[in-house]
Write a protein that binds this DNA or RNA. Structure first.
Lengths: 138, 138
DNA sequence: CTACGGCCTATAGAAACTATAGGGTCAAGC
DNA sequence: GCTTGACCCTATAGTTTCTATAGGCCGTAG
């Protein structure tokens, strides 16, 4: 009576490739499911939930290792909320740092692009010179 | 008389690991240098310049393939500036998209973090519930 | 009964390196 | 003269997060 899923179902429901689900199992991020007579993986709702959790964390940019940590924490409901919070905070700090870097990078790329106004051949285009700071001006 | 460098010198001068320089050589991104009697790599100034160019492009977030393209373009000075410009533009678009994604992610993480105010144990901490949208409230 | 989609395992590849093993070279110090 | 240590060499495997491929079984619809 309990509804079950095959690996393809899980893949469709969570927008994950079949091979990726098997990969998660191989690294222990997904528990090993039951098998049918034909050796097919047979999943229960709990597996679906777990996979959704994993995928959502990945979308949020957590590494697989961090996801595993988060999942372990979540299974120990007596444990302090603090660990989960600090993991989230650390990750937020990483994300913010990356944004800052990328903003600086974008500014530089826009600047480099602006140098192209003049020439049409490489020899009088400034982009490469801008990319290569060590090159002396012609 | 012309000054030469050993691989460790290049590494220090460009803040690159020695193995990484050899890796660049193995994939054809750095030309094969001369060898000393003891089979040590002996680099000239041109190699140093080339490596600086590669590293700077990498810092700007270009992939190794893009760096190779850029370098090829730069060696053909008759070629149109347009190619270099469009590569840079495409890359800028990618970077801007990534920034937008990360901003959305940071907002979500801040939101999740804010949920932790209340409880001190997992069972009344909201972070995991926020991470796992499919979990029903207890 | 054969074709087709879905499932299985196992291995290799992609990107951009990093790490390790096992060994040669060279200058300085005892 | 010999050892120590820093540096160099090649070759291979590991990292992360998957994706792709090969070769083959299962189950159903026509």
């Amino acid at each position: 009576m309990t509804e079950t899923y095959r690996i393809g179902d899980l893949a469709r429901l969570t927008d994950t490739k079949v091979v990726t689900i098997r990969y998660y199992e191989s690294i222990g991020l997904m528990p090993e499911p039951e098998r049918s007579a034909a050796n097919y993986r047979v999943y229960a709702k709990a597996h679906l939930d777990r996979l959704r959790f994993v995928r959502r964390c990945r979308d949020l940019g957590f590494s697989l290792e961090q996801v595993a940590d988060l999942a372990a924490l979540s299974s120990d409901r007596q444990q302090s909320c603090h660990d989960v919070d600090s993991l989230t905070r650390m990750h937020l700090a990483e994300v913010e740092a990356k944004i800052a870097d990328l903003n600086a990078l974008a500014a530089e790329l826009r600047n480099i692009g602006a140098q192209c106004k003049g020439g049409t051949t490489i020899s009088n285009c400034r982009i490469l010179e801008a990319l290569d700071r060590s090159r002396k001006p012609a």
